[in-house]
């Protein structure tokens, strides 16, 4: 069973099925976020359905590009023999 599940996520054969499943999950998550009851909202964003999706995506993109910028332009990434 475990092998088949792992295989589903690895094998090229299932690539299109994987993609469809993934987009389906994304849509379902956003719909659920709109339907779910929100009683006490502490902050402005707590009242916005779909906020966490936007924030998650934004954070992910920001982290990737800020880090890579710091790594390449900021001089953090060095050749492997830097300390030798």
């Amino acid at each position: 069973m475990i092998e088949r599940v792992v295989d589903f996520f690895g094998d090229e054969r299932y690539a299109s099925q994987r993609r469809r499943l993934f987009y389906l999950v994304l849509v379902l998550v956003v719909i659920a976020d709109f339907l779910v009851p929100r009683e006490h909202a502490e902050y402005l964003w707590d009242r916005l359905p779909g906020w966490s999706a936007v924030y998650g995506f934004g954070s992910c993109v920001l982290l990737i590009f800020v880090s890579k910028f710091l790594g390449h332009q900021g001089g953090i990434m060095r050749r492997e023999d830097y300390y030798d």
Binding site: V25, L26, V29, A32, D33, G50, W51, S52, A53, G56
Partner: peptide, 10 residues
């Protein structure tokens, strides 16, 4: 839903 939204859109 918020956790899943955050994670899946990541």
């Amino acid at each position: 839903t918020e956790s899943l939204g955050l994670l899946m859109f990541t």
